[in-house]
Write a protein that binds this DNA or RNA. Structure first.
Ligand code: NAD
Ligand code: NAD
Lengths: 209, 209
DNA sequence: TTTATATTGTGAATTGAATATCAACACTCA
DNA sequence: TGAGTGTTGATATTCAATTCACAATATAAA
């Protein structure tokens, strides 16, 4: 019986899987072929039990003598996280933050890449910026439909957040990564991740106090 | 008995407090003086119960008829999160991301502000960039000591992460906000927050899959 | 062969956070 | 005055994530 049933993983586990994979790529480059849970845990600043639990959840088994086979583990994580044919994403709001993220992704990832960015500033549109074509926001719906885009990164100014989020949902986007300081609400079935730098800094300030 | 004992709040609550405050500033600007838990919840995309529980934890009471007094609530959150005389932070790694964050903070916050940025690229040092003085990394220890800096934002290239983190700890930094893709380990008593864009995106990709 | 050691895999217990529930209260309106 | 409404504050419950504890296994050493 093929294990093709949808695997419901805890969100935290998915995040760690992404990071395991990144670290394991480095280990491969260093010539390692196998790794123990305690080694991986050390590099990720976790407990070995946590690592083993995560790998158990994705159904990967190691050996007591050699630990885990890095190559196989990386492949399995890819099978879980990546979509088969890769996934194009878009970014909306080509300001300071948008540009930083775009530059970072340009020519970097294979499975996840930024297909286009959008803005409403005519100075920025219809040009290549940071290696990616920047279109006017008015073209977003047709682009999403044509290119079958599912994920959008939102880095517009706070005032534009609601309006642009509405456009994204209307265009059929399934997942939004919101970096504006304005909290969003999305309908059932749409996935939302939010992160705010100021919140993190204020939390740190509280902790060191 | 004065309630001066150290208040141990859940991390998630602290994060929400930071966001409550930001939203409440807006409400004040709109002329509101009082707010109900369900109103605040709506704006933050939470349940009213969650809001009330957070406020309960910080010992703030509202009234059944008028809800919470925004001004008082903001003041109390400030007393919990902010240090008394404000807190200067530094940023290390004036690349794309560092510049975006610096621009965002320039002339923005009162209590939290970026006092200086550091880099090891001589093209960038000993200049004002995005409104903030950029020094060479070699001056970091003396600066931290002299200005009594406790918090650092880390946006250097991945390869430099360990080395720079070590310098920060050595200089006496108490909290690090790490945006590099390299996980850090810090000694007991040092606070660490980490965030990685790629991880968030890969999680979204998994969720929409 | 036997013992010691190191590792994985996992059921059970614990911790931490979110949610449900409800008594107490304050105001309104008849 | 008294029923009805809507709110807070607090306790109880549920849910999710992490950690504990240890059995099972493989290898190396005696
Ligand atoms: N840069 C940071 O470090 C930082 C930190 C915390 C929060 N944020 C938030 O991230 C967002 C972006 O920050 P930033 O520093 O890049 O700001 P920015 O002002 O540099 O960029 C905003 C971009 O959005 C575009 N835009 C505005 N309205 C639009 C619309 N309706 N449609 C399409 N594009 C539109 C603007 O033209 C601009 O290019 C802001 O909401 C900000 O509050 C940024
Ligand atoms: N930009 C993004 O969207 C993004 C996304 C995910 C992760 N990251 C991570 O954030 C970090 C910064 O990203 P970026 O895009 O700004 O990279 P960047 O290359 O533009 O900037 C790195 C900066 O660090 C400086 N630096 C390098 N070594 C240093 C040292 N020893 N001391 C002081 N400064 C040093 C460089 O001079 C440069 O200015 C990287 O680790 C990157 O992996 C960035």
């Amino acid at each position: 019986m093929a294990k093709n049933t949808y695997l419901e993983l805890p969100g935290k586990t998915v995040e760690r899987l992404s990071q395991y994979r990144r670290i394991l790529y480095n280990s491969i480059n260093e010539g390692k072929t196998n790794i123990y849970s305690h080694e991986l845990a050390k590099m990720m600043n976790l407990t070995p039990v946590q690592v083993r639990r995560d790998l158990m959840l994705i159904g990967y088994s190691g050996s007591q003598s050699k630990g885990y086979v890095i190559k196989d583990l990386v492949a399995l994580i890819g099978k879980i996280i990546d979509s088969d044919e890769g996934q194009d994403i878009i970014l909306v709001g080509m300001g300071n933050l948008g540009r930083a993220i775009t530059s970072y992704f340009t020519g970097k990832r294979d499975k996840l890449s930024i297909a286009a960015v959008f803005d409403n500033d005519l100075q920025k549109t219809d040009r290549i910026i940071a290696g990616i074509p920047c279109h006017h926001i008015s073209h977003i719906k047709e682009f999403v439909a044509k290119e079958n885009i599912q994920i959008a990164v939102l880095t517009v100014s706070p005032e534009a957040t609601y309006e642009v989020a509405k456009m994204l949902l209307d265009a059929g986007i399934k997942g939004i990564l919101n970096y504006t300081s304005v909290p969003l609400t999305v309908p059932e079935g749409i996935h939302l991740e939010e992160y705010d730098i100021v919140t993190s800094l204020e939390k740190l300030a509280y902790l060191v106090k």
